[in-house]
């Protein structure tokens, strides 16, 4: 399966889903005008890839995936779809795959910091909250 790369715009995030390096990254601003159309195709691609791994590999315990969220702004509609992305990766976690989630923020007073805490609580996966340099 090919990796997925989408350039960021003033309203939509840059997306990198690199299946060779086992990296998923979302960065920039996430408030796409059609949030469903934007995220559905990304989620579909990730889900297909992960279902493929789970069906082909008997033992995925040595597998590791890095998720990086470096968002400057995220609207409330995007949070629903980011949770769906996290939930798909959670399937791998339940099979013993190590999933590392790095969530970047500029200032601990920013909403994006609280968003990281809230999404981590909702999906029940710990996030590394990292101050952006």
């Amino acid at each position: 399966m090919d990796s997925l790369f989408i350039n960021g715009t003033e309203i939509s995030p840059k997306v990198t889903f690199d299946v060779k390096k086992n990296i998923f990254e979302l960065s920039g601003i996430s408030r796409p005008e059609d949030v469903v159309a934007f995220y559905d195709s990304i989620i579909f691609k990730i889900e297909n890839y992960i279902n493929g791994i789970l069906s082909k590999q008997a033992d995925v315990k040595d597998f590791k995936f890095n998720l990086k969220f470096d968002l400057v702004y995220m609207n409330s509609a995007s949070s629903k779809y980011i949770l769906q992305i996290l939930d798909v990766f959670k399937k791998l976690m339940t099979k013993g795959v190590e999933i590392i989630i790095d969530w970047y923020y500029e200032d601990p007073d920013d909403q994006i910091y609280e968003d990281g805490e809230d999404l981590s609580d909702v999906i029940k996966i710990p996030f590394n909250l990292i101050a952006r340099k």
């Binding site: 409330s76 949070s79 909702v122």
Partner: peptide, 18 residues
């Protein structure tokens, strides 16, 4: 957080938390 949890796979386009 409860609304976010309940709404992950709801048919609504948005999260309903605006």
């Amino acid at each position: 957080k409860q609304i976010l949890t309940d709404g992950i796979y709801s048919s609504k386009r948005t999260a309903g938390i605006g």
